[in-house]
Amino acid sequence: MGGTSKFLILRTISLIPTIFGVILVTFILSRIVPGNPALILIGPEVNGTELKVLEAELGLNKPLYVQFFIYLWQLLHFNLGYSYLLGQSVNYEVALRFPASLELGLASMVLSLPIAVITGVYAALRANKAGDHASRVLSLLGISMPVFWIEIVMILIFYTYLGVAPAPFGQLSANLTPPARITGMEILDSLLELNFVDFFNATWHIILPAVGLSLASIATLSRVIRSSMLDVLNRDFMRTSVAIGLPKKIIVNKYALRNALLPGITVAAIQAGAIISGVVLTETVFSWQGLGLFAVQAIDQLDYPSVMAVVLISGLLFAFFNFLADIIYAWVDPRVRL
């Protein structure tokens, strides 16, 4: 259908202003940063001329819009900026740490989506029965607990008291040699290397943070699926399906579910944002060597370019997930394919 490709193209084009906006906001915020980056770099005990030279070197004496274009130009060349503290481009550190964050984020998404759908459908089919009430209470708790707090509670229970979870320090036990870096995601790398010791250890390590991170998303999504499923079950076309006498499995899993998933897709995209935020907090709790922890450490060291690079990446990543959600939505719902 010609409309589909047209939709894809239009939606891709509509990414541009969003990306531009994200970059612009990051730029503005990074220029309001207190203190002169040049000053931070060389310390306060310098004379005026030295400062001027350095500012010129950094392009800080140019008008703002020129600075913005320089910033854009650098980004187009995948240059995320220079960290004065690291003494090198932020790129290197980002490339090093990004896979760990991605691994954690993806793991929690993979965990949360099916669980949310299953519990949501279950609750809808048993609306206002005990199971539904239980899921309501649990999801209320799920959205009301700060991620980092419930993770601490989980560490306390599963590591400190029960001892079934690994120590909350990083992705792999300290006594193991990490697998060779291929994707940077240790679970995947160890599997590619057929290093099953590392693989199981890495999987063991990711369980707690991934579960903690996905709780809120599961709670939110499953409620959305529940209520949309309930709506769908009351629609006329469901009566048609029942009257036709289709098997219940087909009615629920095919005809009803696809309709019920539609609002879920939109909410899942929003939850992607929540998971990105949650990754930062989770990495802090579990000393997970990802971008989030990198950013938090950079904050402590006043390394603003690094922080801003992480903020920018998270914004772009989120924009990508929204884009993906729209595509999936259009794939599921023919009505929006223009």
């Binding site: 935020s277 930062v280 950013a295 903020v311 998270s314 914004g315």
Partner: peptide, 11 residues
Amino acid sequence: SFPSILFAIAV
């Protein structure tokens, strides 16, 4: 289009 915590961090 920013994840909330990261935007708050930037601010």
